[in-house]
Design a protein around this nucleic acid. Structure first.
Lengths: 349, 349
DNA sequence: GATTAGCACTCAACGATCAAGAGTGCTAAC
DNA sequence: GTTAGCACTCTTGATCGTTGAGTGCTAATC
């Protein structure tokens, strides 16, 4: 249990260290305004805090640095979220969101960019999940005699397109007929149910209409894969190179391990989902709380955005554990609300 | 004018330096097999080469390093392109291309990935340009009473989609009617001509049918922007963090300047296009030959891929000036041919 | 009993100095 | 024309004080 004074000191150390990236000494805390204590007293308290695991010392005779547990305590108990963003910042952000952007991917991309420029960290936006959405319409646009673009539009307005080619003995007309049938049967069905539906209800009917059962199966498979292929929400990054601004990543090895991870969108997507599509509207993972080894020195703060009540996507910030948690949380909170408003208006309005 | 011996020495220095990243001394050249000369002789020749600007010395008593001019000479005259890729490499690549991938964006993304893993440099793929293509079909899929997804499919099978919302006093039926009209008038027209066409031919007719001229204009504008919005080909990157493998980018500052540039897809796209949509099938830009300051230490090698004879996209490799030009050129050559074959078969077959 | 001044101690960071080694340029001999 | 030899240059790495920030402890003070 921490005394009020210890909490105050811990908070000061965290905030000082976040700014300076240098171990914090007792003197600099003591000199702080509204702290009427001598360095010696602070030293005693610091020794206590270290003993309890909230602080660490890089080496004897260096100042103290918050431990993972220290950050955790800071985030859970010392953060004053009452503080709002500064008005001038809010108005800056408002401008960004008032720009008319009318394609969901652009919005996601832009949001990632803004998040990163606002925080000076790396931002991630996970585009709306189409997996849970229902199919609104299936369209086929012929290109040549034996290939066509298949378009699947979901209830959230996401479009997936895929070029499919089909064998010589299947005519375009047959494919169009098939697509008509699929439309009849599948519109309104959640995409994740689609595969089972096709096999249960549709295969038989298709086979009856198309005579050659095996051929029908093959075509169906191809169409199906076009629809459900992109079940992973797309990942949009902003300010990846901001990572390099942080002194903890001046070591190229460390930088590379994080940046490489960011290149693997599937992994990033997984990490974000795992974390955030749960219940809490906002999640903070500090250092080792991330399972991935390349994120041991990083913190990942994420928030969901929703359509109505259903979470459909995630926005997040990745930075060093030495992160401005307060600011990041406030910015994410703001952006997630804006995003929620935007997509809600957009897709259900 | 370089003697045969000087050429040989220059080639050895370039190739040695490319491998080692260390200045090359006279001794190591002299010890090379099939080089029956002493270090002293090499030194003389090296001094000559330096005087003529092909080599540089980081400092007295260091070995020599190729200058930009040296690399240029190497690429233009000393590269033995007769050498083919090793059979085992070719077969590896063949495997990659034989995988069925059936969406152009995936192909581009994958190609970028393969290029980068094959070369250990950073790869860029510029997706097929839709700007010169003609419109094949315009589709509208309603989402709510006052918003819809507009789909434009081009002659190369590229799909652009955009969510448009329209004011209360315009009904969905009217928009659908408008889209029918646009389809009639615009299919087969190159996209770059679209804006003028709309204003010349269509506006009047639309106004006649829709009564309210101004309103019609507004809707038209919105539809139009949906169609021609993405005139920039999309940029796909692979192995951006490979940049950090190179010793010349162990300095975080330099790394950051290049990586940040790579984040700005519009700039990358511009650089690639400027370079490569011209006549030559393959282009090599060494160091300062790039205008951009962040690319002064980089070389950019690009190749186009085509549909039939028309170049529609660019693939490229970005690495340090100290680059394995021979290998990179061979790999790019191979990939561009595969890409050409792929998209040609795909879109015009 | 809590606080603080004082002091000895520790350790990273920095700079100076030095030796080793790689590489050059020049000269004279082959 | 080529090469051996040698003096010279310059980087690299190691060693070694010195400095300074910061600590922990003790004893004095409030």
């Amino acid at each position: 249990m921490l005394s009020e004074r210890q909490k105050m000191i811990l908070r000061m150390i965290v905030e000082d260290y976040v700014q300076s990236a240098e171990p914090v000494g007792s003197r600099s805390i003591s000199k702080h305004v509204d702290m009427g204590l001598s360095a010696a007293t602070i030293r005693n308290e610091m020794a206590d805090l270290e003993e309890q695991g909230y602080l660490e010392q890089p080496h004897t005779s260096a100042g103290r640095v918050p431990s993972q547990q220290g950050y955790r305590y800071y985030v859970d108990h010392l953060l004053q979220l009452g503080e709002r963003l500064k008005p001038e910042e809010i108005s800056k952000m408002k401008v960004l969101f008032s720009e008319r952007v009318d394609e969901i991917e652009k919005v996601a991309q832009q949001t990632a960019l803004y998040l990163s420029t606002f925080t000076q960290y790396t931002a991630v936006v996970l585009g709306p999940q189409v997996y849970d959405n229902t199919l609104r319409s299936l369209q086929v646009v012929p290109i040549t005699e034996h290939s066509a673009v298949l378009l699947a539009v979901t209830s959230t307005g996401q479009v997936q397109n895929k070029t499919v080619s089909f064998p010589d003995d299947i005519s375009l007309a047959q494919v169009e007929q098939l697509v008509r049938l699929l439309n009849e049967k599948l519109v309104g069905i959640p995409i994740y149910q689609m595969r089972s539906r096709i096999f249960e209800e549709i295969s038989r009917e298709v086979a009856r209409q198309m005579k050659d059962f095996e051929e029908a199966q093959r075509i169906l498979d191809r169409l199906l894969s076009a629809i459900v292929a992109e079940k992973d929400g797309k990942v949009f990054l902003g300010g990846t190179t901001n990572m390099l601004l942080q002194p903890e990543f001046h070591n190229v090895e460390k930088a590379k391990s994080v940046l490489s991870w960011l290149e693997h969108h599937d992994l990033v997507s997984k990490a974000l989902l795992q974390e955030s599509m749960t219940s809490a509207p906002l999640s903070v993972r500090i250092g080792g709380e991330n399972e991935l080894s390349m994120l041991q020195n990083c913190s990942l703060v994420t928030a969901t955005y929703r359509i109505g009540e259903d979470p459909v996507g995630v926005i997040g910030i990745i930075g060093p554990t030495r992160m401005e948690y307060g600011r990041v949380i406030r910015v994410l909170d703001y952006f997630s609300k804006e995003m929620t408003q935007l997509v809600t208006k957009w897709y259900s309005g």
